[in-house]
């Protein structure tokens, strides 16, 4: 059927599909903003660093939730595993055994990525055979399982490994032996997180614009049809799941490295819920939704707690209300609203 003699008409639909991956100038905005924040708000650098890492984590969640349509409430399982992988490697007591490379940041993030990917491969192989509530429950059960393990393993084995509730403190070596982490002004920490986010983002962006990325959207839109066009859906889902878990592991590793400690909070269900909320607030399946969602969530949380305080839980009211309203009135998130507004303006201009 492939007819080589046909000269394809340069129809707008074709052009649009062919050019979708091209960079647009507006895409520079978040990065310029990230650079500006460093200089404009030096007092908020730790928070800003956390935002950068959470954006990477949110991107990993968006890849499976927003693109492939796999609803999970347990992605902290992979984030936390990456975090503990990096933290355990950096434990001061173990440095001699680890040939003194354990506290090298790049070794840590490599380990976090691999740990996330491996756990993703094993658990994904099991979890992705189920659907809907069962899938959701398995992701939750895995997270809780690991949470309990991290909390209790010291007591069960009688040795100091994860430090239970208190976690582990450590000191990272300078990056590449040159750039020292800075526990006061967080400047190296910020640029480190920034660099990892740039790399992670480019990977995710490449994937979603590829033919593979298109099949993910196909799986989300209609699994039955994907089977019927001959797509090995299960394998594709496992593939994206492992990639997503690797990125979550990477984010987890950076998260603990820039803060010099790990606690079981990295495995907490609350974090898994929060990251999902951030993704939907920003807009799922939209790449930059992760940026906007994380930013809005963190700013909103900070604002609420500074202005209204934490005692009566105004924050829960705000985030709950925001969630309900988003689902009811803006299921495509803030970016979706932005898209609607820009189409409307475009029409008016015409």
């Amino acid at each position: 059927m492939a007819d080589a003699n046909m000269t394809p008409q340069p129809s707008p639909a074709v052009q649009q599909l062919l050019r979708r991956h091209r960079f647009r100038v507006v895409e520079l905005l978040p990065w310029i903003a990230a650079i500006a924040v460093f200089y404009l708000f030096p007092g908020y650098r730790l928070l800003a660093t956390q935002v950068l890492v959470l954006i990477l984590f949110a991107l990993s969640v968006d890849l499976i939730v927003g693109y492939a349509g796999i609803v999970t409430l347990g992605h902290t399982a992979y984030f936390g595993t990456g975090a503990y992988a990096a933290a355990l490697l950096a434990r001061p007591e173990w440095q001699e055994t680890l040939w003194n490379v354990g506290a090298q940041p790049l070794v840590g993030i490599a380990a976090g990525t691999v740990a996330g990917a491996l756990l993703g491969l094993i658990s994904g192989w099991i979890i992705l055979r189920t659907r809907e509530l069962t899938l959701l429950m398995l992701t939750l059960a895995l997270t809780f399982l690991l949470h309990e393990l991290a909390k209790d393993i010291d007591g069960l084995t009688g040795t100091l490994i994860t430090g239970g509730f208190d976690g582990i403190n450590f000191t990272m070596n300078p990056i590449l032996g040159i750039f020292e982490f800075d526990p006061i002004f967080y400047s190296t920490n910020y640029w480190y997180a920034f660099a990892v986010l740039v790399v992670g983002f480019l990977i995710v962006r490449t994937i979603v614009n590829s033919p593979f990325g298109a099949t993910l959207v196909g799986i989300r839109e209609n699994v039955r049809r994907m089977h019927a066009v001959g797509s090995p859906v299960q394998r594709r889902m496992l593939m994206v799941y492992v990639i997503s878990c690797a990125i979550a592991g990477l984010a987890g590793a950076v998260w603990v490295q820039v803060q010099d400690n790990v606690t079981i909070a990295v495995y907490e269900f609350e974090l898994a819920g929060a990251i999902l909320i951030m993704v939907i607030l920003g807009g799922t399946g939209r790449l930059y939704g992760a940026f906007i969602g994380v930013l809005v969530y963190m700013i909103l949380e900070n604002l609420t707690e500074t202005v209204l305080g934490t005692d009566p839980p105004y924050w829960e009211l705000v985030v709950g209300g925001a969630l309900v309203l988003t689902v009811l009135f803006a299921p495509r998130g803030l970016l979706g609203i932005g898209e609607d507004v820009s189409t409307m303006l475009g029409r008016k201009r015409r």
């Binding site: 939730v65 839980p313 709950g320 925001a322 009811l328």
Partner: peptide, 30 residues
Amino acid sequence: LYRWIYRRPELDQVLFTIGIVFMSVAAVTF
């Protein structure tokens, strides 16, 4: 509230009901 989301995708239902949980926690504390 609930009847608006019966036909929505699973993700919307999950997030919507988590939103309700958050609000109930706040309401009970108030």
